[in-house]
Amino acid sequence: MKILELISNPDTGRLSHTKLWANVACAASTGVFIYQGIKGTLTVEAWAVYLGLVGGYVAALRYIAALREKATATAVEQEG
């Protein structure tokens, strides 16, 4: 994976503000999570927020991708 794929639209190759800011948010929250872990100030609440943000975002993306694939497969079946 190229680093530019994290912030660009795969179809056009142009900058995607949605991808850019989502990855900035994930990177910032990961930095805070690591910092709190090193300092010994990491709480259960911080774990929940971090996992909800990063894990939830990834789960949502995969769910949306699965729905799109299913819709595409259904459309192809209906045509053929």
Results as ranks from 00 to 15, higher is better:
residue 2 K to T: 09
residue 65 A to R: 12
residue 10 P to H: 04
residue 75 A to H: 11
residue 74 T to D: 10
residue 22 A to P: 02
residue 58 V to C: 06
residue 35 Y to K: 08
residue 30 T to G: 08
residue 69 E to V: 05
residue 1 M to V: 12
residue 58 V to Y: 03
residue 12 T to I: 07
residue 53 L to V: 12
residue 73 A to Y: 10
residue 20 L to C: 04
residue 26 C to E: 14
residue 51 L to I: 09
residue 32 V to N: 08
residue 80 G to Y: 05
residue 45 E to M: 11
residue 35 Y to F: 08
residue 16 S to W: 11
residue 9 N to R: 13
residue 78 Q to F: 07
residue 58 V to P: 04
residue 51 L to A: 05
residue 45 E to A: 13
residue 75 A to M: 06
residue 29 S to E: 09
residue 21 W to Q: 07
residue 67 L to N: 12
residue 51 L to D: 12
residue 62 R to D: 03
residue 47 W to E: 14
residue 74 T to C: 04
residue 25 A to V: 12
residue 75 A to I: 08
residue 33 F to T: 05
residue 13 G to E: 03
residue 67 L to D: 05
residue 50 Y to D: 08
residue 4 L to S: 04
residue 57 Y to V: 13
residue 14 R to C: 05
residue 77 E to K: 06
residue 57 Y to P: 00
residue 24 V to Q: 03
residue 76 V to A: 05
residue 33 F to Q: 04
residue 70 K to A: 14
residue 24 V to M: 00
residue 33 F to A: 08
residue 45 E to S: 10
residue 43 T to H: 01
residue 1 M to R: 08
residue 26 C to S: 12
residue 80 G to T: 11
residue 34 I to S: 02
residue 61 L to Q: 12
residue 2 K to E: 08
residue 9 N to M: 15
residue 43 T to E: 07
residue 22 A to N: 07
residue 23 N to V: 04
residue 36 Q to I: 01
residue 34 I to P: 06
residue 42 L to R: 00
residue 20 L to F: 15
residue 53 L to A: 13
residue 32 V to T: 11
residue 14 R to T: 10
residue 30 T to N: 14
residue 26 C to T: 00
residue 50 Y to W: 13
residue 30 T to F: 11
residue 77 E to H: 06
residue 59 A to L: 13
residue 32 V to H: 01
residue 66 A to W: 14
residue 16 S to C: 09
residue 6 L to G: 00
residue 77 E to L: 01
residue 46 A to Q: 11
residue 16 S to Y: 07
residue 24 V to T: 09
residue 42 L to D: 11
residue 53 L to E: 05
residue 77 E to W: 03
residue 67 L to E: 04
residue 63 Y to R: 05
residue 44 V to M: 15
residue 19 K to M: 06
residue 70 K to S: 02
residue 29 S to V: 11
residue 55 G to H: 03
residue 75 A to Q: 14
residue 20 L to R: 00
residue 70 K to L: 15
residue 54 V to K: 05
residue 15 L to E: 11
residue 56 G to T: 07
residue 41 T to V: 11
residue 62 R to Y: 14
residue 71 A to F: 04
residue 62 R to W: 14
residue 4 L to W: 12
residue 64 I to C: 04
residue 49 V to M: 01
residue 19 K to Q: 03
residue 68 R to I: 05
residue 4 L to M: 05
